[in-house]
């Protein structure tokens, strides 16, 4: 067999086998009605794709994720530059940020629902809260890790502070910010879904909750499949965007021998 077709054939076989096992388990009623057959799920998926409600939920999910991501990127980079540029501020915020970092936004979901209600603002707030901290901390690291020689050289060439910020400090912090964004973008999607599922915010999370509580299991699986595809798109898009924005950086340059 050809070297390059074998992996592809095996991959296809793997997917086919998984779908077959699923189908057999569903037809055999291993889990009763709660596990619908593949065929039913894909039929439900195509029906769902034809409804306006689905597309407006999808739009709400993507819109909330991207808007909150953009807000927290701008705020996070500005805050990160401020914190990273002044040592006392950096030390003052260190303990607080280190404490908050491992605390996921789902912890303050009840508070957000209490203050904002099950609204779009609630989702936006949660997503921004969840994405802001990693971006701030990475920016701080990047700003703090700027090569002091490059900074001093710029100063001795008579560059003013804003110029040093935009020509030396920010470019050298860019890979850190890029990493933070690559992690934050899929996280934004996840938090939007969480906010909808548990907090009643608009979007696909809410649709999943309704499908589950209404016993519409075929739609439940169809929506989860949609979310899986959406998650992959988010991951792929941010990776491509990072590569594009940072093509000049050595970790992305092609090695020339």
């Amino acid at each position: 067999m050809n070297q390059s077709t074998k992996p592809m054939l095996l991959s296809a076989a793997g997917v086919a086998a998984a779908l077959l096992v699923w189908q057999l388990m569903a037809v055999g009623k291993v889990a009763g009605e709660a596990l619908p057959p593949v065929t039913t799920v894909f039929a439900a998926l195509f029906t769902t794709l034809g409804t306006g409600a689905f597309w407006s939920s999808l739009g709400a999910t993507v819109g909330i994720s991207l808007l909150a991501l953009a807000l927290s990127a701008v705020a996070g980079v500005v805050l990160g530059i401020l914190i990273g540029s002044f040592d006392p501020v950096r030390y003052a915020t260190l303990a607080v940020l280190e404490f908050l970092k491992p605390v996921p936004p789902i912890v303050i979901l009840p508070l957000a629902v209490l203050v904002f209600g099950p609204t779009q603002e609630m989702s936006l707030f949660l997503v921004a809260f969840g994405c802001l901290l990693p971006i701030v901390m990475q920016t701080v690291d990047g700003v703090h890790g700027t090569d002091p020689v490059a900074r001093d050289t710029a100063r001795s060439y008579g560059l003013k502070s804003p110029e040093i910020l935009f020509r030396v400090v920010l470019p050298s912090a860019m890979p850190y910010i890029g990493t933070a964004m690559r992690v934050a973008a899929p996280a934004a999607l996840v938090i939007t879904v969480v906010a909808g599922l548990l907090g009643g915010g608009p979007g696909l999370g809410q649709s999943i909750y309704q499908a589950q509580s209404g016993g519409d299991y075929a739609s439940l699986y169809a929506l989860v499949i949609v979310l899986g595809v959406l998650g992959l798109i988010f991951q792929g898009a941010t990776r491509a965007a990072e590569r594009r924005a940072l093509h000049w950086h050595q970790s992305f340059r092609e090695v020339v021998h």
């Binding site: 074998k6 793997g14 996840v190 599922l197 699986y221 989860v224 979310l227 998650g231 992959l232």
Partner: peptide
């Protein structure tokens, strides 16, 4: 690896919390 790679990568794309209702 060839058998399960696509499956793993698809399942990884699903937000973990969305599995709870299932």
């Amino acid at each position: 690896r060839w058998l399960i790679d696509p499956l793993i990568h698809f399942l990884r794309g699903i937000p973990p919390v969305a599995l709870v209702p299932i």
